[in-house]
């Protein structure tokens, strides 16, 4: 791995800038610890929060297109942490590559530059796996998470559709398990690791959303997990909320994978409350 491959454009997205700032802070800290340079995309806008599924409305691609255009200027790969942003940007990029008339219309409309499809959209967890490697991660571990039974929860948008996301095998994902093992923790396999938490139904169908999130939490607990590890702020919110009514001892803490990495790297100040609790017991 050359140094040249270690600089990335970084897109935090709206949620990481505000309600999920803990994900952003822990992400930047562990990236720095691994020698990864994250350069925030200048003047970025919201990715759009939903991958446009309707083909007859090109304008719905403006938001992600503008982000991709801004990222192209840096010449680096674009890395993001939020699973939804990753999904929207990656698939928008794939869509614009294969629908040149849509790309042309957007380029005519957007004044800041042209989309040429040069930038590779990546997720930081994929960057750690592919560009850094588990050996280097192991070397950075200061406090192995021995005895931590952690359930890797992928959710939906990181993995599917597999061919477009280019992230992991959708039916047998391994990257979070491999990360947890590199950090000294014990990954817990559970049946709902790639089943939906309910996503935006938290707004439009809260009962159904609650049922799905509860099922994920219960499945992880049944499998013996003491913690759930996620890569999506909405998953974290849904899984936390599903448990909010339960007594504390029965709740499974939900942590971002970057917080788990931070804890293992000895960066407890950004590892979040899940590890503060661990540290104090």
């Amino acid at each position: 791995m050359t140094e040249a491959g270690r600089a990335y454009s970084y897109f935090p997205g709206c949620t990481l800038a505000t309600t999920a700032v803990d994900y952003d802070v822990s992400g930047r800290a562990v990236a720095a610890a691994l020698g990864l340079e994250l350069n925030e995309v200048p003047d970025w806008n919201c990715c759009g929060a939903a991958f446009p599924l309707s083909a007859d409305n090109v304008m719905s691609f403006i938001a992600p297109a503008r982000v991709l255009i801004a990222a192209e200027r840096s010449g680096h790969d674009l890395a993001t942490l939020c699973a939804v942003c990753f999904h929207v940007l990656k698939r928008s990029d794939a869509y614009l590559r294969t629908h040149s008339e849509a790309a042309e219309r957007l380029n005519a409309f957007i004044t800041e530059g042209d989309y040429t499809g040069r930038t590779r959209v990546r997720h930081l967890l994929g960057v750690v796996r592919d560009d850094v490697g588990w050996e280097a991660v192991k070397q950075r571990v200061a406090a192995p998470l021995t005895g931590l039974a952690a359930a890797p929860y992928y959710g939906c948008l990181l993995l599917r559709p597999q061919e477009e996301m280019e992230f992991d095998q959708a039916e047998r994902p391994r990257v979070l398990q491999d990360l947890l093992r590199a950090l000294g923790a014990t990954p817990v396999e559970f049946p709902r690791q790639a089943e939906c938490c309910g996503s935006t139904l938290v707004v439009s169908a809260p009962g159904a959303n609650r049922r799905l999130s509860t099922a994920v939490v219960d499945s992880a607990r049944l499998a013996g997990a003491a913690m759930i590890v996620t890569a999506c702020p909405l998953c974290k919110y849904n899984l936390d909320q599903a448990q909010a009514g339960r007594p504390s001892p029965e709740q499974l803490p939900v942590a971002y994978f970057t917080q788990v990495m931070a804890a293992a790297f000895g960066l407890l100040e950004v590892a979040g409350p899940a590890f503060a609790v661990e540290a104090s017991t």
């Binding site: 997205g13 709206c14 949620t15 505000t18 309600t19 999920a20 919201c46 759009g48 929060a49 939903a50 719905s60 939020c82 939804v84 942003c85 996503s199 935006t200 139904l201 938290v202 707004v203 439009s204 702020p233 909405l234 919110y237």
Partner: peptide
């Protein structure tokens, strides 16, 4: 809630 949930729900 993470605002992407609200924005996403509204867009849909």
């Amino acid at each position: 809630a993470p605002q992407m949930a609200i924005v996403g729900a509204l867009r849909r």
